[in-house]
Amino acid sequence: MAVDDAVKPLRDVLTNENASLAARFRALFSLKHLASQQPAASETIPAIEAIAAAFTSPSALLKHELAYCLGQSGNDAAIPYLRAVIEDRQEDAMCRHEAAEALGALNDAGSLPLLKERWQDEDEEEVVRETFEQLKQSDFASIDPAPPLASQANAKPSIPDLQQTLLDTSFPLFQRYRAMFALRDLASPPDLPTAKPAILALAEGFKDPSALFRHEIAFVFGQLSHPASIPSLVECLSDTKEASMVRHEAAEALGSLGEEEGVEDVLKKFLNDPEQVVRESIVVALDMADFERSGGMEYATIPSQEVAA
């Protein structure tokens, strides 16, 4: 099948402002699948171009997710589009933060001057300035802003010690991220004896003064999909004084727990939230919750081998 036949229908949905947000997100993650194929296939570059084409959307939530998917593609063809987002000071800070993190995920040394400039710019948005971290491949399906703290002498770091590092604002953000991802690793798989204590330790991170840090805690909870995280996620989503970028991440994390009793009812309470990015996140989260209950394997309309070939 021709490349256009594989990518074009997905691009048409993703860039269609009249399509439902749920449909656009599913198309996006299908394009992400095509964009991140290793080795690169004939659909790879067209898929990256299709994702980037949606940066004209007025939805900050969608554009934030576009940047994330480009960073996860592992393909340098995404770099110019991500740099353009960072350089656009009229763009939403949530999107620009994600674009900066995506460049780190791509290990793009050529973007270091741009990132350093934004880091040192006192007029820059705080969440963008904080996004000057080095990323590495982890055991999860994403690329993290920092590697987990390594164990020493064959002894795993204790949860109380990791929690202390996680919450200590005197430590560099990079080191605290390492503690965060070490706690995440202790919470997966969910039947580990360390899982629930690690989740509870991570939940304390919602008290941090940095919105970016709180946002990352919610993202990690979305990766883990552990029921023990539900109370703290609900509390975060319910706090109307919380930053919208944090509440959006909490909503999507709850969407990944959609099969758990009561989660869908909680999400529906925020369908008319005053914050647009939260309202849109609820729509996506409810679609994710419906998907989780269906027992599907992948949240995307990934083409079959016959269609993609």
Score class of each variant (00 low, 15 high):
Ala99Gly: 10
Ala2Trp: 11
Tyr299Lys: 06
Ala93Leu: 07
Ser30Glu: 11
Pro197Leu: 07
Ile48Glu: 09
Arg26Cys: 01
Leu114Met: 11
Arg247Pro: 02
Leu34Asn: 02
His97Gln: 13
Asp12Arg: 02
Ile199Glu: 05
Val128Arg: 06
Gly71Ile: 12
Glu260Cys: 11
Ala67Ile: 01
Val7Thr: 05
Ala67Tyr: 04
His97Cys: 08
Leu166Asn: 06
Pro197Asp: 03
Val263Ile: 10
Lys196Trp: 01
Glu259Pro: 08
Thr165Asp: 14
Ala41Leu: 13
Asn18Met: 01
Lys241Val: 01
Ala182Asp: 00
Ala67His: 04
Glu235Gly: 14
Ala228Asn: 03
Thr301Cys: 07
Gly74Thr: 07
Leu62Ser: 00
Pro145Tyr: 09
Phe213Ser: 06
Ile302Trp: 00
Leu103Arg: 07
Thr56Ser: 11
Pro58Tyr: 02
Ala2Pro: 15
Ala285Ser: 12
Gln134Glu: 13
Ser158Gly: 08
Met180Asp: 08
Arg293Ala: 13
Arg279Cys: 01
Leu186Phe: 02
Ser151Leu: 13
Leu233Ala: 07
Ile79His: 06
Tyr299Asp: 10
Pro39Ile: 03
Lys241Met: 09
Ala251Val: 04
Phe174Ser: 14
Ala100Arg: 11
Pro46Tyr: 00
Lys156Trp: 13
Ala52Val: 03
Ala195Arg: 08
Arg279Met: 07
Ser158His: 01
Ser142Lys: 10
Ala52Glu: 02
Ile143Thr: 13
Ala218Lys: 01
Asp12Thr: 07
Ala53Ile: 00
Ser142Ile: 13
Glu235Asn: 13
Ile302Ala: 04
Glu122His: 00
Lys207Gln: 15
Met297Val: 15
Asn272Ser: 14
Pro172Met: 04
Phe132Cys: 11
Leu112Lys: 09
Ala35Ser: 15
Gly205Asn: 04
Pro197Arg: 05
Ser210Val: 05
Val277Pro: 02
Ser225Ile: 10
Thr240Val: 14
Thr44Asp: 03
Phe270Pro: 00
Ser170Lys: 11
Ala179Trp: 02
Gly296Thr: 09
Ala105Ser: 13
Asp265Ser: 15
Glu264Val: 15
Arg247Gly: 03
Asn272Asp: 15
Leu257Ser: 10
